[in-house]
Every structure is written in structure tokens, then in C-alpha cells.
Amino acid sequence: MKHLLSAADLDRDQAIMILDTAAELASLTDRSVKKLPTLRGRTVVNLFFEDSTRTRISFEVAAKRLSADVINFAAKGSSVSKGESLKDTALTLEAMGADAVVIRHNLSGAPHRLATAGWIGGSVVNAGDGTHEHPTQALLDAFTMRKHLRNGSGDLDGVRVGIVGDVLHSRVARSNVLLLRTLGAHVTLVAPPTLLPLGVETWPCDVSYDIDSVLPRLDAIMMLRVQGERMHDAYFPSALEYSRLYGLDSARMARLPEHAVILHPGPMNRGMEISADVADSPRSLMVEQVANGVSVRMAVLYLLLGGMKEND
């Protein structure tokens, strides 16, 4: 495998290999070894057309811990008329000899285009594109769940995961549905019908409009960020109604099984999709997700830049 554009690019063995590699890297970096020589002399470019400090830093730390040279390239979003064109930027990066381009873009499919248009020769890692996918986020979520629910090894066979919120606009949800399915988990999407994409009934998951009926059966619940401006587009009547119907507060948390964990891709809207006390409870794994993000991204960079083993 040369690129990581979609969670659908990964079969079960490849996904587990990434998670296993990440686990091994995490244990190495837990020790005194903070930096490995693995990618010495390789150049990783963080090409961010959309602000995301946390994702950018996560990739930057991951690449640096593997001794890669890191170039951060913040570009203005592309439009037909003005702004930095993706193609021109790509040609510049190619001239710099980028071995991998980590791209975040506001437009769905931009990483796919970067990988296939013939502009560059290096690997492309999708760090989130529009409302399409965010595969490394799904990998870090799977890693986190596996650690807590499956002792950190194997797949997620039989794990029941609820993903709650703005599925329609969520690249995190798309990637998670695909990856979790690949790993054998059972996903239920929970959202008001306005925030579910057309055709969601064909996705490899269940769909519910009622969070309370889903809660008692979950091993993990993932709360998606819901942007306040959605209510101006009439996706729901008010923030208050949204949080009443779909927000995770302590009363709802109490109805989760005792072992169930809470995830959130961040940044959180406290008081909207998640209440402050839930966010700060020990069952919430947000801080750990950040640390796991670095390990997973190290694994992805290592496996892509070494050329991932084919299925054998």
C-alpha cells in the first residue's frame, strides 16, 4: 500500500498490523526512547489547507519521533478563482522531494486527487478531507477501544460502538464505520434524521434516532462534534433541543454499562454534545486518544514509507 486515503483501503490484516505496530511503538516511546532513526533522511510534508493545530501537531510529533524531516505547509483553501492551487502546491512539494504528504483539506476527495492526478510521486496520507474521511482518526479510535476493551490485541470482534451526532458532515464517522466494521465491531449510528446522509441504511451499521434505547448495549460511545451553525441551516431547532435529545450527560452516562468507554474526536463542544462532567469523567478517554494518535500516525508513516507488506 502506497497511500492511506480511506479507511476502506485497509483490510482486516492491514488494519491490525497498523494497530500492532502502533502498540509496539507506543511501548518504545513509553521508555526513554523518544526518537527512532527509522525515517532518517525522509521528508514528510504536513500540507494543511484547513486549520487543525491538533492533527497537524500529532502528525508532526509522529514524524519527528521517527527522525523524518518535517515541513509544515499551511495553504489557503483552493477555489476556482483565487487562492493556492492544490496542483501548484503539489508540484512545489514534489520539487522539494517529499516522501510523504499528509494532507488536510476542506474539500472531499482532495487527498484522492493528490494521490492520483500524477502531480506527485510520494505517499499521500489523508488527514481529513471535507466531509469524506479521516482514516487516522478512526485508527486511533480503534486503537483506544482495543486497548480498553480487548487488552490491546487482535481485532474488535463483537464490540458494540455507538457513534452519536452529526454523521452527515462527519469524516470521523465515515472512517470509523468502515474501519470498525473491518475489525468486526458492531456500529450503531445515532442522530436526528436530518444529520444522517441519504442512503445510510446501506452502510454496514445500524441506525437509531433514539440514544436512550442504544446506551445500555454499548461497549463504547463516540460523541461527534456538532457545530452550532448547523441549527441555522435547520438541521435541528436549537442547541438546547439537540443536547436534550442527543447529548451525553451524566444521567445518560449512568445508563451505559459499567465497562463502557467514552470517546470524542475533539474539539469538544461542552454543553452541546457532551456535558462538562462527562467530558471530565475518568471514563472519557479524550486525553488518551491524543497520545494514541501519535503512536498510530507513527505506525502509518513507518508502514507507508517502508512500503506496506501486501497480504501474504
Partner: peptide, 18 residues
């Protein structure tokens, strides 16, 4: 809107043109 609205637009994350 970017493409026909349907199952594929939902998968590709492209705004649908119903």
C-alpha cells in the same frame, strides 16, 4: 451541490444534488 444525491454521495462526502 457536487454530485447526484444518493448512496454514493453519502460515501464520498460530496454534497448531494437531489
Amino acid at each position: 451541490a457536487q454530485m447526484n444525491e444518493g448512496i454514493l454521495s453519502g460515501q464520498l462526502g460530496l454534497t448531494g444534488w437531489p
